[in-house]
Design a binder for these strands. Structure first.
Lengths: 258, 258
DNA sequence: GAGTGGTCTAGACCACGCG
DNA sequence: GCGTGGTCTAGACCACTCA
């Protein structure tokens, strides 16, 4: 690993269109990522110090630093000066509900407290074609389907359907979905070792149908925000499909553009 | 500037709660930002090389590099290996329509081509109280109000109202709004020297009223995405309030969570 | 005081763009 | 071939945390 100038990423690809020059720190980054995927360090744990890693990879501290910098920027690692570098978690106070962009029109998330969860359904089913496609499964593969309502105070605000690959979420129960304190993704880490790393959302405006209207306690045909999310774990592997309906009479979806 | 270890940011603030330790590269970053705000380098132009800046600020190249890295990460500067570092623009092919998150359900932005713009209204008015508040103006200050419809192909898809501070957008005409090829924010840079740096959006689902329904050629009460945006220039100064209504029957608002 | 991440430097060399 | 940004190193010192 040491002193290999401009080594390319993979072997046996000499005829590729681009030489695929890969800087050392990118290779280090890839190695750290592999360890993360492999579960060598669990969520919340500290990874070895920069000096240790530099020694292990036969590389200078600065090179390891640059690799870790990028992983920290992607929210995979969390640096804490004086303490160490830690595997990021959905349990941290600072970034809890990182993926929940719905904010109360007045006040902030803190003043609102934790959402109440009511799990309406939690069962193992065969994946419908479209669900299978979005989760990169075969149609008919087992998935866990969950339907729940999240309420702020006493106001039901979010109606969500979740689909999770059955192979990774064996034994998920309605009790687990409802009882865990904190973000659902934190529970997934603790109970199933599945860490959600990023997600993509498609947002539309729709009219509530009869069932939805009743569950959210709004008039039939009320405009609702439809949020379709695919969440990915390491390696861009899709791990959750989520279809949410948000009431936006007291809340709004907040987004920042940079 | 050189060799000042741990100097604090401002003078005469010895009694502040925190010593406000500020790394050298942050101070350099602030200086570069000032030059950007002052217009020392115009959008699209190259800024001095890292070595030049290092000399000017009596600092090593690595320190300048770290300052520029952060500014590039914030999309204020654009690095191009072998060529230089440039003041970012809304005209670049890569990031055109950076702030427009509406995507066609099938295909991509490229296949869809440029949106057609129809300007319904463009006039100078006194700012209503709420508009003034969001633009940090006094109620009654002059603002330019624009109403327009954006169409993809022949389908009207976006109905937008814009409010711009009159002091910065003197002489903005409907012709300018309609005639410019490329993003509106690129036109603002060229014609008014105003560069939008970031924005915040609040998104809701609403039902089309009679006027909106006719302009977007949809049935009355059709659910639409309401997107309220405040766009900021340097220094977090609000420079535009925009209220958009998006049809989401053929398009969706796309967001990435990290 | 030992150990961690954070800053800063100086210098070498590499990849890229362009004349 | 030169100038640009990009990578990598080695070493010094600083700020923070905790025992």
């Amino acid at each position: 690993m040491a002193h290999l100038p401009s080594s390319s990423a993979g072997p046996g690809l000499a005829d590729a269109a681009t030489p695929a020059f890969s800087p050392l720190y990118q290779q280090i980054k890839a190695l750290i990522l592999e360890s993360l995927q492999a579960g060598e360090w669990k969520p919340g744990e500290a990874i070895p110090s920069e000096m240790d890693l530099a020694g292990r990879f036969r590389v200078s501290q600065g090179t390891v630093r640059k690799a870790i910098d990028e992983l920290a920027a992607e929210n995979l690692l969390l640096r804490r000066q004086g303490k160490g570098t830690f595997v990021a978690t959905h349990s941290e106070q600072q970034v809890r509900y990182r993926f929940l962009k719905l904010m109360p029109d007045a006040g902030d998330l803190a003043s609102e407290g934790q959402p109440q969860r009511e799990v309406l359904e939690c069962r193992r089913v065969r994946a419908p074609a479209e669900v299978a496609r979005m989760l990169a499964l075969r149609a008919g593969d087992a998935v866990v389907q969950v339907r729940r309502v999240l309420s702020f105070g006493t106001v039901p605000t979010i109606l969500e359907d979740l689909w999770l690959p059955g192979a990774f979420f064996k034994g998920l129960t309605a009790q687990q979905m409802a009882g865990y304190h904190g973000p659902t993704y934190a529970m997934f880490e603790v109970e199933f070792g599945v860490r959600m790393v990023r997600a993509e959302e498609k947002i539309r405006a729709v009219a509530a149908d009869a069932v939805q209207a009743e569950l959210l306690q709004v008039p039939h045909h009320t405009p609702l925000l439809s949020v379709e999310r695919v969440a990915y774990t390491y390696n861009d592997a899709p791990m959750e499909l989520r279809r949410g309906l948000y009431r936006t009479d007291t809340h709004h979806y907040r987004n920042e553009l940079n």
